[in-house]
Write a protein that binds this DNA or RNA. Sequence first.
RNA 1: GGCCCCAUCGUCUAGCGGUCUAGGACGUCGCCCUUUCACGGCGAAAACACGGGUUCGAUUCCCGUUGGGGUCACCA
Length: 439
Amino acid sequence: MSVVTRFAPSPTGRLHVGNIRTALHNYLFAKKHGGTFILRIDDTDRERSTAEFDQAIRDDLDWMGLRPDMIVRQSERFDLYEREFQRLKEAGRVYACYETPEELDLRRKVLLGRGLPPVYERQPADAPVPEGRAPHWRFRLDHEAPIVFTDLIRGEQRFDPKLLSDPVVRREDGSWLYLLPSVIDDVDLGVTHVVRGEDHVSNSAAQTQMFEALGAKPPQFAHEALLVAAEGKLSKRLGSYGAEHLRAEGVEPMALLSLLARIGTSQPVEPVANLAELAGGFDFSTFGRAPAHFDPNEVALVNARLLHRLDLAAVADRLPQGATEEDWLLLRPNLERLSDFTAWFAVLHGDVDPPELGHEERLLVKDAAAIAEKLDWAAEPWRALTDELKRTSGRKGRELFHPLRLALTGRESGPEMAGLVARMGRDRAVRRLEAAAKR
RNA sequence: GGCCCCAUCGUCUAGCGGUCUAGGACGUCGCCCUUUCACGGCGAAAACACGGGUUCGAUUCCCGUUGGGGUCACCA
């Protein structure tokens, strides 16, 4: 049987690192086994779901190369839910309830106050039905059958159904809550593996019975430990590391994905060039069970390391017009993000603002300009320039190089000067040295 | 509050009773390369939360404490 996974976001916001990680794991597991990766848009909540977020989610997945083999929307499948719902109703697995949210809330507080688990208490069969009120519907958990399933990450999971509330599956107005439609879809689409955060384990327990009530075998579950922010402790804050933010920061998708695929596992976080390679090493047994700390700085680190080994071909279409292989190899080791390339490209082929230098440095740079003027640029201009200047000025080491670097590139640090100087050409070099001397 | 999960270097983790003078990766620090900074190469420092057991012997098993995470919605 071939593997089928699904990623089921609701279009009520953009993707963030937690979401993306779940999507990625579903994708990688499916691809590793030559299976199918489904994107299921969970838009049963018509109040909060928007077409814009629906689109944004697909764009973000596309940006990362996480292409779904199939896309379905729950809002287009209500007929199916209706049919299955009727079946469950006839089988007595779904029943009508008439409590108001306020009543339920109060009851919960009372139980909690008495130190009891706030589990929903079923009404007796002969309880009076309030007049003129539409019911909402709950799924009847089988209290006699202990719920047991083997989680791919957490091992054997056991739940006493008596400690679980019968989940509400449908509201008074007929709208759906996510629990049941999700199961119906998983059955219908042949989902074999449900990979999601550990905040869903108790949902999985209840859903296990729903699969069975529908006459289906529950899928394999894998509940991964959540990500928490490195600073502070609220996992909610992770929301700020959204896809749009990461994209705006100039993060390479594969850098993000390399980190997200490995964080919280026993495998080293290292830049990996493509999804296929990531999929090859994917293994639930390497997943830890403790929440992992997500540190945005780590994304930047992986991003830089990834860039340093990328070939020109991988980035050529995102580089400025006229950038050559030589430019790329020269500048690449110094990039933290690809967009840095543009500024360095200007150092080679455009203009830079002259820096402010001290009196001594201005004199040095003025001498440098005079020397540079006469050099054979086809030989080793940087070597020749610095050798000569060392002799005339008596300076060496940082004393000598720092002012030259500043004058020639406008920056404190950067790639190898020899390469930069040779590449920028004599005219540009002389012009900059003179400009810095005058400033 | 009930229930569930977790607890090893700063971080992610390996370890499944003796093989641990506790291994790897990221970060940090140092050295090398570079007549500068960075890149790169090499190396070093750095951890078994605490208290009880069990055992000839506990990082490893059990209990408790402390600490973290999750969940108990007519959200997903």
